[in-house]
Design a protein around this nucleic acid. Structure first.
Lengths: 206, 206
DNA sequence: TTGGAACTCCTATAAAAATAGGATGTTTTA
DNA sequence: TAAAACATCCTATTTTTATAGGAGTTCCAA
């Protein structure tokens, strides 16, 4: 008899953790060896217990799942991380992947999805339970590089400050702010402020 | 021996339903008699099975939990509804209460909270597991109610169309668009377009 | 049936943003 | 060490938004 896959869950929703445990009892080759409600406890657990696959919620009370994922991947390279995400968090997944995650599972996934995720990741594959049949609205690729000043100005614009106000707040000239604004619109391919802020929000720049 | 409290769960996240069932096995006087993943199935179940307390998720695939709550309260007055909500949905709770809910339970509630919720509601009290000690996360999380037209105009603004262009696209006057824009800014407490779009993005309105 | 939303439209002014086409010094970095 | 890239600043014009203060119509629910 083989050793079972050791699954670890980090989620601050007890209901989710419990659901996981229950569903996984039906999986022949996997078992939940532990769970944590925050990143701190998670790291603590991993230091003392061997784990094969960790499911990480993206919204955690202390640090976010993305940082936690990076941390785990660095400190415990044998642990394979999977992001656990609601429908609304999807924008985070690319960053999660960059942080070393092997994929992600939606929280409204079925038992079958869950099992498939575990099997795929155990077999060293990636798992994404995204529905590619829909046009995946993925212009995600082009995240433009903003300079530090541009980021500052962008944030100020998003806060609702006018060029005049931003100039005063950053101790620069109004025309300078205006120039940065123009450049931001160029980089984010937006024709005005509204589109700029929308694009920035989508790319998680603000 | 008394009859156990019959609990019913409506949530499209199997993990949550499962977690519920598991946690409730430890409750002496309650048992989960069923669950549904959407409102349609929920109504179907209630027609054929007696239920004491129903936990309703707010985000359901077909109709939202608020309407479902109203429907259940109207059709099955003996069923006591509790909203099941994530931290982010809180803005809905007042509407949920108006629709007849006896309170709400956060999804990251502890087992104790869950039990308390059931006991309180069974005893015909209301239950809110809000933590009023914290300064409620900024009232900014309030999701204002936008009319259909306002939503349309908001989307157009976010796309980068000017008032003139929006007027042409929606076959209305420029001043009308302008009025909607002003009202949007009022409702989202924004002093200009940039802040408006940022707030809208944050509230997931665009 | 009636009062309240929601939607429509208006005038007029002030404020801000967008566009165009520059320039100059200062850091990076290949 | 130069060429990029960055950050700063300018004039001038046009377009768009924001603000203020209205008003009429339709439709729905209490």
């Amino acid at each position: 008899m083989k050793t079972k896959l050791r699954i670890f869950i980090v989620d601050d929703h007890p209901l989710v953790s419990e659901g996981f445990k229950t569903l996984l009892r039906q999986h022949p080759d996997a078992e939940v060896v532990g769970s944590a409600e925050n990143a701190f406890d998670a790291i603590g657990f991993l230091k003392n217990n061997p784990v094969d696959i960790a499911f990480l919620d993206i919204n955690l009370p202390d640090i976010n799942g993305i940082e936690l994922c990076a941390k785990i991947t660095a400190e415990f390279p044998d642990v394979k991380c999977l992001a656990l995400t609601t429908f609304n968090d999807r924008s985070y997944i690319s960053r999660m992947i960059q942080s070393g995650a092997r994929g992600y599972l939606l929280k409204n996934a079925s038992r079958e999805d869950l099992f498939k995720a575990i099997d795929e990741v155990a077999g060293d594959n990636l798992f994404f339970n995204v529905d590619y049949s829909k046009p995946t609205e993925s212009r995600f690729t082009e995240k433009p590089v903003l300079t530090r000043r541009e980021q500052e100005v962008l944030r100020e614009i998003a806060e609702g400050y006018t060029n005049q106000e931003i100039a005063e707040r950053l101790y620069i000239g109004v025309t300078t702010v205006s120039t940065h604004r123009q450049n931001l619109m160029l980089k984010l391919e937006s024709k005005n402020t509204a589109a700029l802020i929308k694009a920035a929000a989508k790319l998680d720049l603000i």
